[in-house]
């Protein structure tokens, strides 16, 4: 604790005259000062410091943008809109494919083909947009 030469070995300045050996006197003083060690921080204080850190981080997150709960709600809204978009896109493609297939089948003029077209159309609707779309391309 007392390895500081600046304190122990330095001239005693305006106090030097009062001692025949200022350096020795400083060394003795250093030893005396070492009797009184400061208390350590301790785990309880360290825990309070870390708790303060958590509060500051939490407050910064709240102040730095949308609070977390709102961010979650906003995220869900975005997710919902995206899902609707995907559904609409898939439905449009499925309808486009079915209509195209039926038009082609009608132009061929065959009754059997008409029945097949209707069957494909019904199966596409029944299977749902995404699955129906895949099934439709396979059927074609």
């Amino acid at each position: 604790m007392t390895s500081n030469d600046d304190l122990r070995g330095a001239p005693a300045g305006d106090g030097a005259a009062e001692s025949s050996s200022a350096g020795d006197s400083d060394a003795v003083l250093s030893q005396i000062l070492d009797v009184a060690a400061a208390p350590a921080a301790g785990e309880a204080l360290q825990a309070r410091m870390l708790s303060d850190f958590d509060r500051v981080v939490s407050a910064a997150e709240t102040a730095g943008g949308a609070p977390r709960p709102l961010q979650k709600v906003f995220g869900r809204i975005v997710d919902g809109a995206s899902l609707v978009g995907r559904f609409a896109k898939g439905g449009a493609l499925a309808l486009f494919g079915v209509v195209g297939f039926m038009t082609g089948a009608a132009s061929a003029g065959g009754g059997a083909e008409e029945d097949m077209a209707v069957a494909y159309f019904e199966s596409a609707l029944a299977a749902g947009v995404d699955d129906g779309l895949e099934g439709l391309w396979d059927a074609e």
Binding site: D6, L7, A10, P11, A12, G13, D14, G15, E18, S19, S25, D26, L29, I32, L33
Partner: peptide, 10 residues
């Protein structure tokens, strides 16, 4: 400051 402190403490 150190010099005065040491003198006072002594």
């Amino acid at each position: 400051l150190l010099g005065r402190a040491r003198r006072t403490l002594r």
